[in-house]
Design a protein around this nucleic acid. Structure first.
Length: 261
DNA sequence: ATGTCGAGCAAAGCTCGA
């Protein structure tokens, strides 16, 4: 079972990019972030025509998350990250797919920092860690997949210089991510690529980042022990970032062997 | 500080978010 995460940065604007990738790679499950489309504008028919069931949380203009599955339909277990009923941004959706619990998340970017956006990011991270702890020991395989908007260490970026004050690299952001890993989650990409540099998942539109391969690793797939025991491979479909009209992210994925295997 | 994108509003170029 291949589970991918892809910050699509506008699901309708990049529908051609998305469908070309789905046709080429045919991942079993896909977590999408930054739909930038309200719910009624989600391209459900296009997904269905490609053989994917879809569940999603849209939002006016920004954010928005979805889970696609081409096997059994995703059974939604949550549409909001618990812990703050006043938070109405669409950044989390969770579903069971063929016995695997999948959390699709889009952590706030947090810029500019300091300020209310960064405070929101850190509060959101705190809520994520609390909820992740409750998912960790359920006994089922669990995968937390998405755009965490965190560069975990200095090894996860081409060069820290121009990003030093960015919210993605701050000690607080990193500490929250490290605390999440300390719960016992396995970083799927790092498991497969332990040597530096790891594969990047994001290249900014600024400063010809793609042409210079000036990338960051901010899209992550975290596995609890039940999922990690089934991990066979991981990767990034980086060629997707080089296409005409590409998102600034590339899809990242893990492969899990079947329960029988 | 800068750079480049997308969506929305409203009818072009700005604003906000990233």
């Amino acid at each position: 079972m291949r589970i991918a995460t892809f910050n699509i940065n506008g699901v309708n604007t990049r529908l051609a990019n998305l469908t070309a990738w789905l046709r080429a790679e045919a991942p079993d499950v896909v977590c999408l972030q930054e739909l930038k489309a309200r719910g009624e504008h989600f391209p459900e028919k296009a997904m269905r025509d490609l053989g994917y069931h879809a569940v999603w949380e849209g939002e006016h203009r920004w954010n928005g998350v979805a889970i696609l599955s081409r096997g059994g339909p995703p059974i939604v277990t949550r549409r909001r990250l618990p812990g703050d009923t006043s938070d109405c941004q669409s950044r989390y959706i969770e579903a069971a797919v063929e016995g695997v619990l999948i959390a699709c998340l889009y952590q706030p970017n947090g810029n500019p920092r300091p300020g209310p956006k960064f405070d929101y990011k850190m509060a959101w991270a705190e809520r994520l860690n609390r909820h992740a702890a409750s998912l960790f020991g359920t006994g089922a395989p669990v995968v937390l997949a998405g755009d965490f908007n965190v560069v975990p260490t200095d090894a996860d970026i081409y060069n820290t210089r121009s990003w030093k004050s960015d919210a993605l690299l701050q000690p607080e952001s990193r500490a929250a991510f490290a605390a999440l890993l300390d719960q016992g989650w396995t970083d799927g990409l790092r498991e497969r690529f332990p040597k530096d540099p790891p594969p990047w998942t994001f290249w900014s539109y600024f400063r010809a980042s793609w042409a210079r391969d000036a990338g960051l690793r901010i899209d992550h797939l975290l596995l609890n022990p039940e999922a990690s025991a089934r991990l066979t491979d991981a990767g990034v479909d980086r060629e997707v970032r080089g296409e005409e009209g590409a998102s600034d992210h590339a899809p990242a994925w893990i492969d899990l062997r079947s329960r029988e295997g």
